[in-house]
Amino acid sequence: MQLPEFEYLRPKTLAEGLAALAEHGPDATIMSGGSDLLINMKFRLDTPKYLVSFNAVQEMKAIEPQADGGLSLGAGCTLTQLAESEVLAEKYPALHQALFSVGSKHVRNAATLGGNICLDTRCWYTNQSENWRETRDGCFKTDNELCHVIKSADKCHAINSSDSAPVLIVLDASVTLASVNGTRDVPVSEFYNNDGVDHTVMRQGEILVGVTLPPPKGRSVYAKLAQRDGLDFASGTFAAGIVGSNEKPESVCLVMGSVGPEPKVLADSAAIIKASGLNEESIETAALAARASLGEVTNLFTPSGYKRRLVKALVKDALGELRDLQV
């Protein structure tokens, strides 16, 4: 497969890049590592007139410990750079694990944190070659008012496969978005929309420049299931965080990924753990509640029945791990 034609812009500073985004508006697409975008472009899912590469913008590549004990990560950091960061591994092991689980070493050498957070949603019917797609009508994601997955749907159900998103929500992280009009901080928990087409709150001309992690609190774990460990997008991911003891938790946050267009916060399951503590019985109840709270499970990449069982198993295993985790 070959790439479509485009004009290539390579700003050297963030200001220069933001000006390019403002100038070209909807004709511009942001590129960082390109490990996902270039493939989507080969599939003709994205055919930008201008490709704005932020790879030369050094100010987006820093890992900076903050005065309050938190950590700030530049969106342009490669996943290999983050996987090799001792401070990240030590203070935020669950995030470190999530980033390390992305793709293969080859992919992580190119892929960036910003790219993983903004990762486009994926669907079995859409993420295929142009010829493959032409054998049926288009969909919400391409050029039609139709979803092949859920026929009665009024919006796109493509899956958000970002490995970092669920754990960033558990860690109470926020992202900084910049445009020529200034910057704004958005908690990751409010960053995604439940719509596969317009799946983040980012506006035209904005770019995600960095992530701020507050000082680590309590314990957290990350779990992922994929067809092959080394390479595939996840069939399901789960991040869990607990502050306080297993017996009397002060707060509990549970988030499921790769089950819909946005990471799913499992409020019911978290309430069960918060009320009865983290023990064998509550884990079983919480895992069942997680399965029940999924609602409409789209049958993308894996059958929906499989996904329901997967969610229960993943939640159960990860909560068991969280219970036994020493701070």
Partner: peptide, 28 residues
Amino acid sequence: CTAGSCGVCTVNGEKGEAVLSCCALAVE
């Protein structure tokens, strides 16, 4: 595959790191 899945296009970058040449722009 030209889509970053198979790795047959791997070359080594400046630091010896594995690079998927099918998913890298030459201009970069």
